[in-house]
Design a protein around this nucleic acid. Structure first.
Lengths: 225, 225
DNA sequence: CTTCGTTGATAGTATTACTTTCAATTTAAA
DNA sequence: TTTAAATTGAAAGTAATACTATCAACGAAG
């Protein structure tokens, strides 16, 4: 039994320390998935869990911070999966393939898996659609100076190291990986909502996830070599 | 003297048809640049131009639609520049280079250029930071079905055609170009606010814009061949 | 001279994003 | 076992947001 632990700078009171806290987090994921970040409010969340706005504010300053907490949890989980599934792999290229599969959710068992009581399918959709909003705000520098983006940075760096390992001459390992991580969301989103922006297609016999994987793997490998 | 014309589905009343309308649009760009989309309101805009909320609502349904209008204007302008600067070029690779230069704002004369009374520097920053919010919302499908994303789609397609021209075998022209267009914002943003996510650096002797251009050009060319 | 269209001014509503206070209850410590 | 501390719920309040509606003043066009 594993558990993702998130540092205290993300919240006022550790949501993992109480039933109410865990309930706030897991219900927030589902409500964000249903309503989207803009329509999501602490009031609605409070109603859903039969609690009050004031109680939720005791855990999180505001909904942006809650979103930052959730995305950090998500990236920490991805990083855990990477460590777990690649620690025995020696070949860098093989390692990179596994990493991209994890990032693109290829080979993932269907249905809504739960970990720490979180609906991972919903969390993934929330991250796909909303995670960019954690930094596309005038508060970026403030949030960043509090160290709240270290989860994403750490993941990006971990993968960039594999890239540098494959080709120490390659000039843009971090730029490449941040671009690819973003593309993994975007291409899946475009396939669903703006299909003319991508060849990745809902109608294809292969899943969207494996098409995105195909696109990213092919791109990354070719660029590094 | 040229002028970018935006279709009527984007507004209730054509902002180009009156002083007030033009003032709304040009001041909106500056206010969005200053405050960011979340803090920007029609009330604040009305105060800045000594008008009223009600008057602004006569032009635009809400601030999302205004943002969609502005990004559409921006992409239309980029597309105009592409047509203008590449129509005499026969070689596809040469064409693509020019296109990427335009997209990355390389060779652009410094200072805040004005076109149609718009502060293009501010508009560009707004597009870099806020444009993703036009589609990362639960209203995507609705907005898309009204045809309001055709500007971006058309630009993406225009560049994808050049890619297909260079290599008809390449499988992902649209996916590649949408990824690169997004990366052109992101990498510039990361260099400014989250520098550990990219090798593009403020401290470099070359401008951020030309570093991003270098990264994108090198990537795109290598992937197509 | 009249009518239409545009804008400004004012007011009003429901919702959001919080903060504050207080009482009830549960938990943990002495 | 009592006592104090921490947690939550309940209720109320505030300033701002995202609108909508009404009406009067004004200028331009017929």
């Amino acid at each position: 039994m594993i558990s993702i632990v998130i540092g205290e700078k993300y919240y006022n009171k550790d949501p993992q320390s109480s039933d109410l806290g865990r309930n706030i987090v897991s219900t927030a994921v589902e409500l964000l998935d249903e309503l989207g970040f803009e329509q999501f409010t602490f009031k609605k969340l409070a109603e859903r869990i039969n609690s009050t706005e004031a109680s939720i504010y005791r855990y999180f300053d505001n909904k942006l911070k809650l979103l930052v907490y959730l995305t950090t949890w998500y990236w920490a989980w991805i990083e855990y999966l990477i460590d777990f599934k690649t620690y025995h792999i020696l070949d860098s290229e093989e390692k990179l393939k596994v990493v991209l599969k994890i990032v693109c959710h290829v080979d993932e068992s269907r249905g809504s898996i739960d970990l720490d009581g979180l609906n991972l399918g919903a969390l993934r959709r929330v991250v796909d659609t909303e995670s960019d909003k954690t930094y596309l705000t005038k508060q970026v520098d403030e949030i960043n100076s509090e160290g709240l983006f270290t989860g994403y940075k750490s993941l990006c760096h971990k993968i960039a190291v594999i890239v540098s390992d494959m080709n120490p001459e390659y000039k843009y390992p971090h730029a490449l990986i941040s671009t690819m991580l973003e593309a993994s969301h975007q291409q899946a989103f475009f396939a669903q909502h703006l299909p003319s922006l991508t060849e990745v297609s809902k109608g294809d016999e292969r899943s969207i996830d494996s098409q995105v994987y195909d696109f990213l793997l092919q791109s990354v490998i070719k660029l590094i070599k």
